[in-house]
């Protein structure tokens, strides 16, 4: 059992490090992107309202921009979903590699 205990200990340490590294970087990126998007949305809407009110753009153009921002939000959501799926796939591959690598190192 000594080999298995060593294997388990080594595996636990490796997986802990793997999970922390994978998700810390990714969660920080999501938070950053989300905050930036919300801030830009607010700034843009305020500026467009002013430009429309002083007749620098037509009502149709103003509406187009607001609806365009809604489409952009959908595009951003698709990007985040795709990146999340990619991260999950990377994690899955890394787990398989970690188990295999640890087993080879400790048990063989």
């Amino acid at each position: 059992m000594a080999d298995f205990d060593a294997f388990l200990e080594q595996l636990k340490t490796s997986l802990k490090g793997l999970a922390q590294n994978s998700f810390k970087k990714y969660s920080q990126q999501i938070l950053h992107d989300g905050t930036e998007f919300a801030k830009k949305l607010e700034d843009d809407l305020q500026r467009w309202s002013v430009e429309y009110s002083i007749h620098e753009m037509t009502k149709e153009e103003f509406e187009f921009l607001v609806k365009g921002k809604k489409d952009l939000l959908e595009m951003e959501a698709l990007k985040q979903l795709g990146l999340a799926r990619t991260e999950l796939n990377k994690l899955r591959n890394a787990i398989v590699d970690t188990i295999t690598g640890t087993a080879v190192k400790v048990l063989l």
Binding site: K40, D44, E51, M57, E61, F64, L72, M75
Partner: peptide, 22 residues
Amino acid sequence: TPVFVSEAQGVIGDAFDTIIGL
């Protein structure tokens, strides 16, 4: 209008960036 074109370039440029980013 020039203002609209400029603002639309910002939104559409950002939309392209989501494709490039993914």
